Amino acid sequence: MELEFSLAELPSAAATFWKEMAGSTTFALHGQMGAGKTTFVKALCAAKGVKDTTGSPTFSIINEYAYNEDGMQKSIFHLDLYRLKNEQEAMDAGVEDCLYQGAICFVEWPGVVEDIMPLDTVTLTLEVLPNEKRLLRAQK
């Protein structure tokens, strides 16, 4: 799947993403600093009906957001592993617990945990285009 979108088109891109990625729960986000990874995750959370304030987990490492689906409360985990040096630090922070509890999980800077990511992880690459748009590529 490929999606090209502007900031104004984010809500529509998020809705399309969820339709295309139905059934997938773990996503590894790749892209240069400033590509819009966190902004895209915020839009995805909004599309799911998250009421919490969403933000970058750069310092907290893991943010958890709640949303309701089919009358049940569910979780979205947003992880930013940029500051972690190795897999052990990730394990100590509780990353593995997030990855394997069946909740939706977005992992920015997933390099340090590649060996423990679920086999069905979807790789997302976000690229800045010259026209101030973004290109999202998803690979299952």
Score class of each variant (00 low, 15 high):
Glu2Ser: 13
Leu3Pro: 02
Ser6Cys: 07
Ser6Gly: 12
Ser6Ile: 11
Ala8Asp: 11
Glu9Asp: 13
Glu9Tyr: 13
Leu10Trp: 04
Leu10Ser: 05
Pro11Phe: 02
Ser12Tyr: 07
Ala13Trp: 01
Ala13Thr: 01
Thr16His: 01
Trp18Phe: 02
Trp18Val: 00
Lys19Trp: 03
Met21Phe: 00
Ala22Asp: 09
Gly23Pro: 06
Gly23Lys: 06
Ser24Phe: 07
Phe27Asp: 00
Ala28Arg: 14
Ala28Cys: 11
Leu29Ile: 10
His30Cys: 07
Gly31Tyr: 01
Gln32Met: 06
Gln32Ala: 11
Met33Ile: 14
Gly34Ile: 03
Ala35Trp: 04
Gly36Cys: 02
Lys37Thr: 04
Lys37Pro: 03
Thr38Tyr: 13
Thr39Asn: 08
Phe40His: 03
Phe40Gly: 03
Phe40Gln: 04
Ala43Thr: 00
Cys45Gly: 04
Cys45Thr: 03
Cys45Leu: 04
Ala46Met: 01
Ala46Cys: 02
Lys48Leu: 15
Lys48Trp: 07
Gly49Leu: 06
Val50Ala: 02
Thr53Trp: 08
Thr53Asn: 14
Thr54Phe: 10
Thr54Gly: 11
Gly55Met: 10
Ser56Asp: 10
Ser56Ile: 08
Pro57Leu: 15
Pro57Val: 15
Thr58Tyr: 08
Ser60His: 12
Ile61Tyr: 13
Ile62Glu: 14
Asn63Trp: 12
Glu64Asp: 14
Ala66Asn: 15
Ala66Val: 10
Ala66Ile: 10
Asn68Ile: 13
Asn68Phe: 15
Glu69Gly: 07
Glu69Asn: 06
Gly71Pro: 06
Gly71Met: 08
Met72Trp: 09
Met72Tyr: 09
Gln73Asp: 12
Lys74His: 12
Lys74Asn: 04
Lys74Ile: 08
Ser75Tyr: 14
Ser75Gly: 11
Phe77Leu: 05
Leu81Arg: 01
Arg83Tyr: 04
Arg83Leu: 01
Lys85Asp: 15
Glu87Ile: 06
Glu87Leu: 09
Glu87Asp: 02
Ala90Pro: 12
Met91Val: 15
Asp92Tyr: 09
Asp92Ser: 09
Gly94Val: 10
Glu96Ser: 09
Glu96Cys: 09
Asp97Lys: 08
Asp97Cys: 09
Cys98Gly: 08
Cys98Glu: 10
Leu99Gln: 05
Leu99Asp: 02
Tyr100Arg: 01
Gln101Ala: 11
Ile104Phe: 11
Ile104Ala: 04
Ile104Met: 12
Ile104Trp: 04
Phe106Ser: 08
Val107Lys: 02
Gly111Asp: 12
Gly111Ala: 14
Gly111Arg: 14
Gly111Glu: 12
Val112Glu: 01
Val113Asp: 00
Val113Arg: 02
Met117Trp: 04
Met117His: 01
Pro118Thr: 07
Leu119Tyr: 09
Asp120Val: 03
Thr121Tyr: 06
Thr121Ala: 13
Thr123Pro: 03
Thr123Cys: 07
Leu124Asp: 05
Thr125Gly: 02
Thr125Ser: 05
Glu127Arg: 02
Val128Lys: 00
Leu129Phe: 00
Leu129Tyr: 04
Pro130Gly: 11
Asn131Arg: 15
Lys133Asn: 03
Lys133Asp: 01
Arg134Cys: 05
Leu135Met: 08
Ala138Ile: 05
Lys140Thr: 14
Lys140Met: 14
